[in-house]
Design a protein around this nucleic acid. Sequence first.
RNA 1: GCCGGUGUGGUGGAAUUGGUAGACACGUUGGAUUCAAAAUCCAAUGGGGUCAAACCCGUGCCGGUUCGAGUCCGGCCACCGGUACCA
Length: 801
Amino acid sequence: MFNHKEIEKKWQKFWYSNKTFKTSSDDSLPKQFILDMFPYPSGAGLHVGHPEGYTATDIYSRLKRMQGYNVLHPMGWDAFGLPAEQYAIKTGNDPRDFTDKNIATFKRQIQDLGFSYDWDREVNTTDPNYFKWTQWIFKKLYEKGLAEIGYMEVNWCEELGTVLANEEVLNVDGKMVSEVGEFPVIKKPMKQWVLKITEYAERLLNDLDELDWPESTKEMQRNWIGKSIGAKVDFKIKDHDLSFTVFTTRADTLFGSTYCVLAPEHDLVQFITSNEQKLEVEKYIEFAKGKSDLERTELNKDKTGVFTGAYAINPVNGKEVPIWISDYVLSTYGTGAIMAVPGHDQRDYEFAKKFDLEIVKVLDGDISEEAFTGDALHVNSGFLDGLGKEEAIAKMIEFLEENKVGEAYVNYKLRDWIFSRQRFWGEPFPVIHWEDGTVSLVDDKDLPLELPEMDNIRPTGTGESPLANAKEWLEVIREDGVKGRRETNTMPQWAGSCWYYIGYILNEDGYINPESEHGQKLLKKWLPVDLYIGGAEHSVLHLLYSRFWHKVLYDIGVVHTKEPYFKLFHQGMILGTDGLRMSKSRGNVVNPDELVESHGADTFRLYEMFMGPLEGEKPWSESGVDGARRFLERVWRMFEFSECTDEKVLELDKVYHQTVKKVTADYDNLRFNTAISQMMIFVNEVYKIKKLPREYAVGFLTMLNPIAPHITEELNEKLGNDILAYSKWPEYDESKLIESTIEVVIQVNGKVRDKIKVSAKASDDAVKEAALTEKVKSFTEGKTIVKVIYVKGKLVSIVVK
RNA sequence: GCCGGUGUGGUGGAAUUGGUAGACACGUUGGAUUCAAAAUCCAAUGGGGUCAAACCCGUGCCGGUUCGAGUCCGGCCACCGGUACCA
């Protein structure tokens, strides 16, 4: 039995005090930037899911160091956010203390696992020295015209007097209510900072192609960006000097447009509603405010809507068509208005059937039961009659452009990013609103703009953040006597996580100015991130927002790669022993502390990597942990019973070289479970032979070191060698892997019937000949052999009739 | 609902390009060791069938392509992640 407590503490202390894993400033070595998604340090501490990805990157980092790379492998804290805010409001305590305490726990737990982080580069998003640069980037966005104030809809709860996160809103009978108290929640437009990510939509879409990311993640981002090519069409409103624009991908069906629908929030609704309809329209707008987008669109089974009393003029045929409002049209997609073509759009079809609106067939397909949305020749469409879809779309756009009533247009589902939160615990905006109506930014030399000390953080009841109560901080006076008020919104948690990979690079005992010569040198050296591992739950939002900021920084010359993260990998979730997601309420959360205490960090790391493929979801198992420990015990004993000899042990040649080959390839491809099983096979062989040549002993310890760094360093030290952390990665000799005889499977009509051993050098014909064994013949007898297929070195397939 | 994923023995999983399904572990059973036990070492272990073999069945379900399908195609089912203010 080895004493994990002693060994692990000893090596952790050694690495920490020697700064073994400090990033080298040596520019001659090739670099590897290996990054984890940094955690939100919750009050519950680390759970066993966190170290899964961290172990993977740690193995990879240790491998790359031994392969001669200069490795940057840092860790930090995404420490702003909702839970600390809620804790502060509930208890009256300062979120800073709470956050610092949680970080200390997380850090201790992570360090107990022996990860090879360069702790000199630790970042913390709530550290003013860090968020100084978050604010600086915001200023750059503002100066580039990418940050604007606009009225955007938020979840407003009148009773609670506060804006709620989607997470805090429940759906009861299709209505939004607060999680706390079940009070009504409505969509209410409020002044918000908005980042114009849509201006980058096309680049965010196109540059996905050059990334080594899971195809599924790229696909999700593509779908999220949601590019659709179509046209804008202008509709004049009868008896008003007003018009509105719709976006459509099927401009060719314009002759079939028999009504239009505006989103209930559409600006025009108030101007065009007739007196007779006014009451009903207002009632409907109220009704729609209480529904979430999801309920309004995808979950919407029963269409609702109200006629406004106004008519639009169809620009292609001059027909007067009624204008309705309905919640299935969203103000946030396209132009917030649609031309309804009930014959050829299913939602419009359902709506028209329900409200008995005219349906005109303009494509030659069956519309008796449902809308026909395919490609067919046009009918009832004037100059489009007889044309197919593509041709007709092109011709219609030509008509629209010639008559100045529309144009070709590309629409994205991607929406601009609401970048403000009505909260205390976030980065303050470096913005002052002056009483003369102007807005100015805080000067660079006055950054960071820190959060005020507040005795009691509480909601204001007006929808403003608790910062509105911090009078001294809030109110400023300009030299000319004009009064101003600081922005009371704060930035969302995304802000700090959008650029933290850059933070690590710049953090050399304080943050280097990214535009300085030294900062530039560092950024050019380290970017992009070579490997980024984190959960699939970040597939779209974090990764898309972060890519957007990176592109902006690229445009202003701060960074020099188009993309931040070159290779991305998602680790799967670790489930509870019951196969369900770990959660406090289920009581199935496993905390690593007890296991590290009882089994040791090496066992923990080994078990997590052996559980299954990194990307898969896997349930936790106690007995599996014991098995992992048993393997390490077996390794420990292997060095006790086997003579460590300087002689060659020919029986081990093949399995050793196989192991080097497989482990090297598997580590590189993040397939740790199969690498471990190969090392187990090697150990099993040594147990049979009871001899271990020195060269193979060191090679084996080197290979196991990235997974179980403490025990391998200890064994290696006992052998009298220098530390493994920077030793040379073993190489394999292909010639040792060649077999002289091979086993070939013989199939008859696809079923395995016999196996033969043949010389590796045997000719194809000789193998085919040898395949006709007595047993095989009993299956081919009385039948004609139609075909014989030989797959080299693997099988012979005989087809009979 | 929409987008993306997953489904293989009693259990975790392996099979990297269509070529021996179940590597390696866990568990179980048997043996060795021990006064005895734990630990350790060795062996067996998908299901049916058989004294043993032969043989049959088997990768969520239904169908297809192929000499050959866990792998490719079509249609389902179940579960998981995301769905823009949890991050």
